[in-house]
Design a protein around this nucleic acid. Structure first.
Lengths: 218, 218
DNA sequence: GACAAATTGTCAGGATGCTGTCAGTTTTCT
DNA sequence: AGAAAACTGACAGCATCCTGACAATTTGTC
C-alpha cells in the first residue's frame, strides 16, 4: 500500500516515513505545496497524510485543489493547529480525519486503518512486477505462484526494486533507504544483501549496472 | 438522516440531541449499555455517536458487541478518556472516529460529515477464519467442528488474530490490546501467550515474522 | 472465608535466524 | 595485464524468539 506524506519538517518527515515503512507501507514524501499539488498518480495512493504548515503555502489549499480535481483518496490532516475552527475547516474542505500533533505513532496507525476500512474495505495492497507479487500489509511475497521467504531487509530491498522496476537504483540510494538512521554502513553490505536476494528470486532478476547501481528487470 | 446517540449524561444528551435536531437530523437517544445493545434497526441509522462511560458497563463492550453482530453503521466514539491507548483500542475495536470531550459542536458535525462522505463497505469483522470459529458473545471457540477450550487472554488474542487474519500483528500492538490499562507488561508475556495458544490450535497456525510480529495464517 | 484449580506474568537459559564485516575471488573495463 | 568494482562463503555478534518452571493472582466451589 502506497502512502503520500506531505511534511516540510525534514526531521519529522524522515522519522515518520521510516516508521510507516516499517509498518509495511511504501511511502512517498513531498515537502512543499507545489510538489504536493503536482504529484502524479494520487489515485494509486491508499491514503495521504497532509501537514498543513508548508513553506510555500497552506496545506488547506492543497486539499481544496485536490478535491476540486476529484481526487478521492482518503486524506488525513496532521498538524499542530488544534483549534476547533481549524478542524471544522479541514474536515469540511474534504479531509477524512484530523490529527493534532504531537501524536503517538500507534494512534496515527490506528486512524489510518480506520480510514482504509471505511474507504475501500478491500484495499488493493499488492505490488507486482515480473512474476513477483509483494503484499506489504501481510508482508508476504510470491513468485510464480510459490511463496517466498524473505528477511526484513530482503523484503525492504525487493520492495524498493519493484517500486522502481526497470530503473537504475544507485547503491547510495539503496543505502539511504535501507539504513536511513545509520549511514556508516559499508557499501559492501548492500552487495551482500543483493546477493542473498538474488539467490532467492533468481540471479538474473537483478542486473548489475557497473559503476551505477542495480536494476530490477521486469 | 437518523442518528443514534448513546449518552448517559442526561443534561449533555439533551443538549446534544437538540443541536443535532437543529442541524436536521432525527436523533434517538439511548442512556444505558443494555438499551444500546438491544436497540433495534441499527442498520437504518446513518451513524451512531457512542459515549464510553455508561452506568452499567463500558461503551467499548457495546462497540464490540455491535461489530460482532455485523452492524456496519459508522460509529463515532465520544468520550472524556483521551489517552492514545484508548484511541487505539477504540479505533481497532471498529470505531470510525474518536472524539475527546469537551468538543465543539461544530467539530462534531464536521466529523459526522466526514463519516458520511466515506460511505463504503466495512471489511471482514468475521470471527471465522482458517477452520476456526469464534463467537465473541457466547465466548466459545470451535476448530474443525470440535470445541476449543481457551482462557480469557487466549481468547482475546485469537480474536485479534482472526480479526486481522493474514496481516502482521506487531508485538507492540498485541500488548496494547491485551494490556491496555497496564503498559508495564513484558513483551515476553505475549510470547508465552502465543506459545500457549499455539499448543492448542496448532503450531503452524501462527507464523512468526521475525522482527515484526506474528501472523495468523488463513 | 478457605481451599483447590486454573490462569497468567516473570524469569532464566537456550535455540534460532538475521545481518554486517572480512578476506579472498571473480568479473568487467580500459 | 592491471585496476576498480562486484561477488561470495564464512563467521561472529546480536536481537529475537521459544520453552519449561515457578510464583502470583484470579476464579470456582464448598
Amino acid at each position: 500500500m502506497r502512502l503520500l506524506l506531505v511534511e516540510d519538517d525534514v526531521e519529522l518527515g524522515r522519522r515518520l516515513s521510516d516508521r510507516l515503512r516499517g509498518a509495511g507501507y511504501a511511502v512517498d514524501l513531498a515537502t512543499t505545496r507545489v510538489e504536493a499539488e503536482l504529484w502524479p498518480d494520487l489515485h494509486h495512493m491508499a491514503a495521504i497524510i497532509l501537514d498543513l504548515g508548508l513553506p510555500d503555502g497552506d496545506g488547506m489549499q492543497v486539499l481544496s485543489h485536490w478535491r476540486a480535481q476529484r481526487v478521492e483518496t482518503p486524506i488525513l490532516i496532521l498538524t499542530a493547529r488544534g483549534s476547533w475552527q481549524d478542524k471544522v475547516e479541514g474536515l469540511n474542505a474534504g479531509a477524512d480525519d484530523f490529527v493534532v500533533k504531537p501524536v503517538r505513532f500507534e494512534e496515527l496507525q490506528a486512524r489510518l486503518h480506520a480510514l482504509f476500512r471505511r474507504h475501500g474495505g478491500r484495499a488493493d495492497n499488492a505490488m507486482c512486477a515480473g512474476g513477483i507479487t509483494l503484499d506489504p500489509v501481510a508482508r508476504t511475497a510470491m513468485m510464480d505462484g510459490a511463496a517466498l521467504t524473505l528477511s526484513k531487509q530482503e523484503f525492504r530491498l525487493l520492495s524498493l526494486f519493484i517500486d522502481h522496476a526497470g530503473q537504475i537504483m544507485p547503491q547510495a540510494d539503496l543505502i539511504e533507504h535501507l539504513y536511513a538512521l545509520d549511514d556508516s554502513r559499508d557499501h559492501n553490505a548492500v552487495e551482500v544483501l543483493v546477493g542473498r536476494l538474488r539467490r532467492k528470486i533468481g540471479r538474473d532478476r537483478i542486473a548489475t549496472v557497473r559503476g551505477l547501481g542495480y536494476r530490477f528487470v521486469k
